[in-house]
Amino acid sequence: MDTLRNFGSSMNSLVVFEVVAREKSITRAANELNVTQVAVSRMIVRLEKALGTQLFVRSRAGLVLTDDGLLLERGVTEGFGFIKRAVSDIKQRQQRTQTVTLSLSSAFIAYWLMPRYQRFQSAFPEISLRFHVISGVLQGSADEADLALRPADQRRKSQQSWTFTPEVIVPVCSPSYLESHGPLDDARDLPKHTLIELVPTTINWESFQERVGMVGTVSGDPLIFSDYALVLQTAMIGRGIALGWVSGVSYALRTGQLVPASRHVVTTGRQYELISGQRPARPEVERVKEWLVAEMEADLQEVARMYPVLAKPEPPRGLDQPVST
């Protein structure tokens, strides 16, 4: 601490340095800090003078860190990260409830988690859930969440994870739609059905049909959405057939809001995981994780009992990257 106090520059200079190093621009750093470019430049010069070394060099692409600059950037980033987590932990302790942030798809929240949320609250009255919502493809950074539902291949080595559910896909529709239109078992059934599609996606109806050998015939006009929650809602009100990721539609299958619309069920061989960047995870995060895993296991067992076709899905044959669940 004496070294930091006496090294010849203020701690504010480290804050300025972190922003300049991250933005690689004096102008953008000044805008973020809401100060003038001159003030930022002076602070960096003062820091370099205190350290006796050059921290940046200019290039056509912007500012580039020197070797000493890279060394300082690692230290400052780690130090500020520790401070941020410490402040967050202190605030958490001061709150009567403990907040756990989950990064999930809109469909999973609406049609899997919310129907059992009252049961969660009864089990954990001291924990409040906050949601980072993804409307379509399950991807993106999990850094802002305590737990994120992601395909296993998106996990970084620095993150810990817990297996949550296999990727199993089955066409689903409302009971009334199935009664009036019949199942989608063969290519000849396609013209009488409306297929509900999620876009963008990497596992769509075309790839599913190729996977199960249902080719050569075109369906009726599709309904296309960019939010998987709307895909499922449209299927529930009887407007067509949607591809259902069993982990996301398990509650709707158990309650009869949706039913399998085909004898074809595909497993991709991929796993979805609950991912956390915390090591170790906070006790309340562990409790939420254990509850989610137990609920999903119970759902999958019950759905397999109700619909035997889901207990024996077709073996994987190498589909593209997974989408929302």
Rank of each mutant, 00 (worst) to 15 (best):
G79A: 01
I109E: 15
V218W: 00
L51K: 05
R282K: 10
R188E: 12
G79I: 00
G62I: 03
T217F: 05
Q278E: 12
I237K: 15
R287M: 13
A281D: 04
I196F: 02
M114K: 15
Q209M: 06
F124E: 09
L243K: 03
R116I: 13
P171L: 08
L258N: 15
L184A: 15
R156G: 15
I241N: 02
M306P: 06
K312E: 12
R58K: 13
L71G: 11
Y307I: 10
A148K: 05
F56H: 06
Q159A: 07
G8I: 01
Y111T: 11
Y272M: 10
V309G: 04
P280D: 13
Q118D: 12
Q209G: 06
Q154N: 04
E18Y: 04
V20K: 15
L138C: 00
D146R: 09
S25A: 11
S158G: 13
F17N: 10
T163P: 02
G213T: 11
M296A: 10
K157L: 11
T267F: 15
L147H: 14
E18D: 12
S135V: 12
T97E: 11
G240Y: 00
K91W: 05
G256P: 07
K24M: 06
S207K: 10
Q54P: 00
Y272S: 03
V64N: 12
L33C: 06
I26C: 13
K49C: 00
L138V: 01
R156I: 13
F80W: 07
V231M: 03
A311I: 02
V137T: 04
L65S: 03
L102S: 00
V231L: 03
T101N: 14
G140L: 03
H132S: 05
F120M: 13
A252K: 14
L223A: 02
R282F: 06
K24G: 14
L33T: 07
L190H: 08
E297R: 12
Q92M: 02
V215P: 00
C173T: 13
A21N: 08
V38T: 10
L113N: 15
R155Y: 06
D153Y: 14
A298M: 09
Y272R: 02
A50C: 01
V215E: 02
S158E: 09
Y111F: 14
L138G: 00
P151E: 01
M296W: 15
Q271K: 04
D67P: 05
